[in-house]
């Protein structure tokens, strides 16, 4: 059900590292249940945007609202309360090497929500099944898993606490096209089951077309175009057009050279 208050809203967010301006007045709003994919070249600040929302980085200026609550200056337990609303699939999956697969999936339930280990294990096995992994993998060491398997475990961990908002950081990077498609479909299925709002950052247009309700292009530290996934091929924006077709010639090329 759509509500007037955006689930997630970034208003005029700025972030610089020394002289390098990464976010320069970023505005973006996500409604409840909406899936937005932010596309853009490497180093345009997509990951910085996610880290600012999660509180891993502090924006220099601007507001970030979660369900209408301003979160930029939240610290300690207040920040942890906001983080219970989030799940995240990291680009490298960021699995904890010292824990087994099921302990990774159940980590947020045990350490974050204070659930008993046995109860958390049952949920973890269920979430692993949702991403196509059997119980026999539960005790496996994450270091021994392939890239695709690691992403699946990361996805199971991201949905284990059934968060309201899920971030996907380059979910198909480093995977072959078939495994990429499997991950895209798993993301779509899991998110539909949860009814979660999702924000994905990606270079992969195939992934974006599968996952997104809406696509936004980040360039020069701000969103230069946003629209429905069905509008992207005829958006009339030269940057978007060059990016989605992967052409060498265009406005990006002028800056690269």
């Amino acid at each position: 059900m759509m509500t007037d208050t955006p689930r997630l809203e970034l208003i005029d967010v700025h972030k610089s590292f020394g002289p390098k301006v990464v976010l320069n007045g970023l505005n973006l709003a996500l409604s409840q249940g909406e899936s937005v994919v932010v596309i853009g070249g490497s180093g345009t600040g997509k990951s910085v945007m996610l880290k600012c929302i999660l509180g891993l980085l502090h924006p220099d200026q601007g507001r970030i609202r979660i369900d209408g609550e301003d979160t930029v200056d939240l610290r300690g337990t207040e920040r942890e309360r906001i983080l219970t609303k989030f799940g995240m699939l990291f680009q490298s999956a960021a699995l904890f090497d010292s824990l087994t697969v099921w302990e990774n999936v159940a980590f947020g339930l045990i350490e974050g929500a204070g659930m008993e280990r046995e109860a958390a294990r049952i949920i973890a096995i269920d979430k692993l099944a949702k991403v196509g992994m059997g119980e026999d993998m539960a005790e496996a060491d994450p270091a021994g898993l392939s890239g695709g398997m690691r992403k699946r475990v990361g996805l199971a961990r991201a949905i284990a606490t059934e968060p309201d908002i899920i971030f996907f950081d380059e979910p198909t990077t480093g995977l072959d096209p078939i495994m990429g498609d499997i991950i895209n479909n798993l993301i779509t299925e899991c998110v539909q089951d949860l009814g979660a709002t999702t924000l994905t950052i990606s270079h992969d247009m195939s992934s974006a077309r599968t996952i997104a309700d809406r696509v936004a292009m980040l360039y020069g530290g701000k969103i230069i175009w946003a629209g429905g996934v069905d509008e992207i091929d005829n958006c009339g924006n030269d940057f978007v057009d060059q990016f989605i077709h992967g052409r060498e010639d265009g406005p990006f090329a002028l800056e690269v050279t």
């Binding site: 942890e80 983080l83 799940g87 490298s92 960021a94």
Partner: peptide, 21 residues
């Protein structure tokens, strides 16, 4: 290694304080 592979960030997103953990 945990820092450069984003495991510290993952801990925070899972509501776990890396200093305590």
């Amino acid at each position: 290694t945990m820092k450069v592979t984003e495991q510290l960030d993952a801990l925070i997103t899972l509501q776990t304080n890396p200093f305590r953990y």
